[in-house]
């Protein structure tokens, strides 16, 4: 709180005081009182006035300064009312009351939305489980009736459904994953098996190196992540996919590399952004810009680092790093 701004704000009050003082002087002279009386009255009034202004300024400065600094430091500014001490002057108390009301209503609003969000998430999870029944039925029917042409379309439907599930999972604060030692070899083999028909239809070769190790992660989530990367490689013209694990002193890095069309340098920093489709997406018109965004969010939730390197027309390589610190120590024998 600045003194100059405070004084400027009180300008009207000062003008009224000055006017009153002029009136008093006029009365004093009208009643022919001696000049000394005018000096004494003026001095007393001036002293009184200055003291009042100083006192008012200081107590308000105390309150508002602490309010401002509190607001500055707070991460969630809507908690301001809770953090402010009630002042001893009327306006301040009014302000505090209003702030508290506003904060309370804000919290209620948030709670409503949180509940709605949670209910929506639960509904989506349930819906995904339900919709998998007819999809499974279709897949079995096609197999039993020997209808080979339909399988890939059914798989696409299933893949899209999975994306919805993981989008919802990636967005909520809830911890619905389990970190435990997982064999990279096993997870990748499950992913490969799931995509086998599509990979072979495109004549894409798979190579693996050094996957015989365990990392701390959620197997299901990692399977989804690898599935998304595989889908992308298939979409963008890969002829070969190489998946390898590299052991560094403090972490294991999984390299997922393909020799597809690559990503233009301008687009590279943005590939993990929501709804970003980039030049490749426009040219191929199959991109929603959600896949890699979800992948990034899942990695963040699991505490894995993810980065991408690419050269247009040559390769694209995703690196996922798994921590190996005390907390993430791998127990031998567990899968």
């Amino acid at each position: 709180m600045k003194l100059s701004a405070y004084l400027k704000d009180r300008l009207a009050a000062f003008l009224i005081a000055a006017g009153t003082w002029v009136l008093v002087l006029i009365f004093l002279f009208a009643f022919r009182l001696p000049g000394q009386a005018a000096v004494i009255v003026s001095t007393a009034a001036l002293c009184g006035g200055i003291c009042t202004v100083c006192w008012d300024f200081l107590r308000k400065k105390g309150f508002y300064d602490s309010l401002m600094s509190c607001a500055e430091q707070l991460d969630q500014k809507y908690l301001l009312a809770e953090m402010t001490e009630e002042p001893d002057f009327y306006e301040g108390r009014l302000l505090c009351e209003v702030l508290k009301d506003a904060g309370k209503s804000m919290c209620e609003q948030i709670a409503v939305h949180r509940r709605e969000n949670e209910a929506f998430r639960e509904y989506i999870e349930m819906w995904v489980h339900e919709v998998k029944l007819p999809v499974s039925g279709l897949e079995l029917m096609c197999h039993n009736d020997g209808l080979t042409g339909y399988e890939e379309q059914i798989k696409r439907v299933d893949a899209e459904i999975e994306t919805v599930l993981y989008y919802v999972r990636s967005g909520t604060a809830e911890k619905d994953y389990i970190i435990r030692p997982v064999s990279l070899k096993r997870i990748f083999s499950e992913t490969a098996l799931k995509h086998r028909a599509a990979l072979q239809a495109r004549n894409i070769a798979l190579r693996t190196e050094g996957l015989d190790c365990e990392v701390m992660t959620d197997g299901k989530w990692l399977g989804f992540i690898l599935g998304q990367l595989t889908d992308n490689s298939m979409k963008y013209g890969a002829a070969e996919i190489t998946v390898s694990a590299e052991q560094l002193p403090e972490k294991t890095v999984l390299h997922f590399r393909d020799n597809g069309i690559g990503i233009p340098a301008d687009d590279l920093p943005k590939v993990f952004q929501k709804s970003f489709t980039g030049q490749n997406g426009h040219r191929h018109a199959k991109s929603t810009g959600m896949g890699l965004y979800i992948v990034k969010k899942l990695c963040e939730k699991l505490g894995h680092g993810i980065s991408v390197r690419s050269a247009e027309g040559a390769y694209t390589e995703f690196c996922i790093s798994f921590g190996r610190d005390e907390l993430h120590s791998v127990r031998p024998g567990a899968v």
Binding site: V128, H129, E130, K132, L133, S136, E162, L165, D176, Y177, I178, R180, D218, G219, K220, W221
Partner: peptide, 8 residues
């Protein structure tokens, strides 16, 4: 159709 690591 539950696809959670916990369920498994």
């Amino acid at each position: 159709s539950r696809t959670g690591e916990l369920d498994e």
